[in-house]
Amino acid sequence: MSHARSECEDFQALAPDAYEIVAALGRAAAKAGIDKSLLELIKLRASQINGCAFCVQFHILQAKRLGISADKLNLVVVWREAPLFSARERAALAWTEALTLVTGGVSDEVYALACAEFSEQELAYLSSAIASINVWNRLGVAYRWTPPARQAAVHAAGS
């Protein structure tokens, strides 16, 4: 079993400016009006792909607080096969996977799907949210942050 090399709070204390920049980037999409439930789904999916236990648990807890059903949370990992995701959610999840697994590029098909569901401005903010969660994932994986307990207070980042 791996142990934490440090915790999220340690990173915040050591590099408060970097922490706040990533946190602000993550909050920008919600401030711009992107649905918070949708943002939690994309953050959960990116965190699953990146293997960040801290962020997976954090965003499951956040999603539950927003009222996202357990069924939907359980099926994010197989969203293509699950009929309960809307066209907008599917476009966002496809975009998330493309930007998270960027080494394969972003296909014209995925881009067209995203553009069909999101305005140019919405897609820019959605992309920013995906970029932010990918930064948090890399930090969480590198430092092996301990996943938050069910009752844990929400940290200020809103990652």
Rank of each mutant, 00 (worst) to 15 (best):
residue 1 M to N: 10
residue 4 A to W: 05
residue 5 R to E: 13
residue 5 R to D: 14
residue 6 S to G: 09
residue 6 S to L: 12
residue 8 C to D: 14
residue 9 E to K: 07
residue 13 A to S: 14
residue 14 L to Q: 14
residue 20 E to H: 11
residue 21 I to T: 11
residue 21 I to C: 09
residue 24 A to P: 02
residue 26 G to T: 06
residue 29 A to I: 05
residue 30 A to C: 09
residue 31 K to S: 15
residue 33 G to Q: 08
residue 34 I to V: 11
residue 35 D to P: 07
residue 36 K to Q: 10
residue 36 K to A: 11
residue 37 S to V: 11
residue 37 S to D: 09
residue 38 L to P: 01
residue 39 L to H: 08
residue 39 L to W: 11
residue 40 E to C: 12
residue 41 L to C: 04
residue 41 L to E: 02
residue 43 K to A: 11
residue 45 R to L: 05
residue 45 R to T: 01
residue 46 A to H: 02
residue 47 S to W: 01
residue 48 Q to M: 13
residue 49 I to K: 08
residue 51 G to K: 10
residue 55 C to Y: 02
residue 57 Q to K: 10
residue 59 H to I: 02
residue 60 I to Y: 14
residue 60 I to P: 00
residue 62 Q to R: 10
residue 62 Q to Y: 14
residue 67 G to R: 10
residue 69 S to L: 12
residue 71 D to N: 14
residue 72 K to P: 00
residue 73 L to H: 13
residue 73 L to S: 06
residue 74 N to H: 13
residue 74 N to K: 10
residue 74 N to Q: 10
residue 75 L to Q: 10
residue 75 L to K: 15
residue 78 V to H: 14
residue 79 W to M: 05
residue 80 R to Y: 06
residue 83 P to Q: 15
residue 84 L to I: 15
residue 84 L to D: 15
residue 85 F to E: 09
residue 91 A to K: 02
residue 91 A to H: 03
residue 91 A to R: 02
residue 92 A to K: 01
residue 93 L to K: 03
residue 95 W to N: 04
residue 95 W to Y: 02
residue 99 L to K: 11
residue 99 L to F: 03
residue 101 L to E: 12
residue 102 V to L: 13
residue 103 T to R: 13
residue 106 V to H: 06
residue 107 S to R: 03
residue 108 D to Q: 13
residue 111 Y to H: 14
residue 112 A to K: 06
residue 119 S to K: 07
residue 119 S to C: 06
residue 122 E to R: 01
residue 123 L to E: 06
residue 124 A to P: 13
residue 126 L to V: 08
residue 126 L to H: 05
residue 128 S to T: 15
residue 128 S to D: 08
residue 129 A to G: 02
residue 135 V to N: 04
residue 138 R to A: 05
residue 138 R to N: 07
residue 139 L to N: 02
residue 139 L to I: 14
residue 142 A to I: 03
residue 143 Y to M: 14
residue 150 R to I: 15
residue 151 Q to Y: 15
residue 152 A to L: 14
residue 155 H to E: 14
residue 158 G to D: 07
residue 158 G to T: 05
